[in-house]
Lab assay of single mutants.
Amino acid sequence: ENVVSAPMPGKVLRVLVRVGDRVRVGQGLLVLEAMKMENEIPSPRDGVVKRILVKEGEIDDTGQPLIELG
């Protein structure tokens, strides 16, 4: 899985990584606010952040691509 998608609709509060960062499975990639709760979205695998497809403050839909890993 190279693309991390939104598991729920919500607002992107914080992006915790930058392009080029090495990430490990379970590491937080970004924080979504949904139903007044903050949810940290973890990396599904080890890899390198290739692209960040959303910006802080954006509203996303379920299934929307958020981050691409390489």
Rank of each mutant, 00 (worst) to 15 (best):
E1T: 14
E1M: 14
E1Y: 14
N2T: 15
N2P: 06
N2R: 09
N2L: 14
N2G: 10
N2I: 14
V3Y: 14
V4H: 02
V4P: 03
V4A: 04
S5R: 15
A6D: 03
A6Q: 04
A6K: 04
A6C: 11
A6N: 06
P7F: 06
P7W: 07
P7T: 09
P7C: 09
M8V: 08
M8H: 13
M8G: 10
P9S: 12
G10L: 05
G10H: 04
K11P: 01
V12S: 00
L13P: 00
L13V: 12
L13T: 08
L13S: 05
L13G: 01
R14M: 07
R14G: 03
R14A: 07
R14H: 07
V15M: 08
V15W: 11
V15T: 03
V15R: 00
V15P: 02
V15D: 02
L16N: 04
L16H: 04
L16K: 04
L16I: 06
L16P: 03
L16D: 02
V17Q: 01
R18M: 11
R18L: 08
R18Q: 12
R18C: 11
R18P: 01
V19S: 03
V19P: 08
V19C: 08
V19G: 03
V19Y: 03
G20Y: 05
G20N: 06
G20H: 06
G20E: 04
D21T: 06
R22F: 14
R22H: 13
R22N: 10
R22W: 14
V23L: 03
R24C: 12
R24Q: 10
R24Y: 11
R24W: 10
R24E: 08
R24V: 13
R24M: 10
V25S: 10
V25D: 05
G26D: 03
G26Q: 03
Q27M: 07
G28I: 15
G28V: 15
G28S: 12
G28Q: 06
G28K: 09
L29G: 00
L29W: 02
L29Q: 00
L30H: 00
L30T: 01
L30C: 04
L32I: 14
E33G: 09
E33H: 08
E33W: 15
A34T: 13
M35Q: 12
M35H: 13
K36E: 14
K36N: 15
K36D: 15
M37K: 12
M37D: 07
M37H: 11
M37P: 02
E38Y: 09
E38V: 11
E38K: 10
N39G: 05
N39V: 15
N39K: 14
E40N: 07
E40I: 15
E40R: 09
E40S: 09
I41L: 08
I41R: 01
I41P: 02
I41C: 05
P42M: 11
P42S: 11
P42C: 14
S43T: 04
P44C: 06
P44M: 05
P44Q: 04
P44G: 04
R45M: 14
R45D: 04
R45S: 09
D46H: 08
D46K: 06
D46G: 08
G47Q: 01
G47K: 00
G47V: 02
V48I: 13
V48S: 04
V48G: 01
V48C: 12
V49L: 02
V49I: 12
V49M: 00
K50E: 09
K50T: 13
K50R: 11
K50A: 10
K50V: 14
R51D: 06
R51C: 12
R51I: 08
R51N: 09
R51Y: 09
I52Q: 02
I52W: 02
I52R: 01
L53T: 03
L53W: 13
L53A: 03
L53S: 03
L53Y: 13
L53C: 11
L53R: 04
V54I: 10
V54N: 01
V54H: 04
V54T: 10
K55P: 07
K55F: 12
K55R: 12
E56A: 11
G57S: 06
G57F: 06
G57A: 06
E58M: 12
E58I: 11
E58K: 09
E58F: 12
I59Y: 14
I59E: 10
I59M: 12
D60K: 15
D60H: 15
D60I: 15
D60V: 15
D61M: 13
D61W: 14
T62K: 13
T62N: 06
G63T: 08
G63R: 08
G63I: 05
G63W: 07
Q64K: 11
Q64A: 13
Q64Y: 10
Q64G: 09
P65M: 08
P65Q: 07
P65K: 06
L66N: 02
L66I: 07
L66G: 01
L66Q: 03
L66H: 02
I67E: 00
I67V: 10
I67Y: 02
E68G: 03
E68K: 05
L69E: 01
L69Y: 05
L69S: 01
G70I: 13
G70D: 14
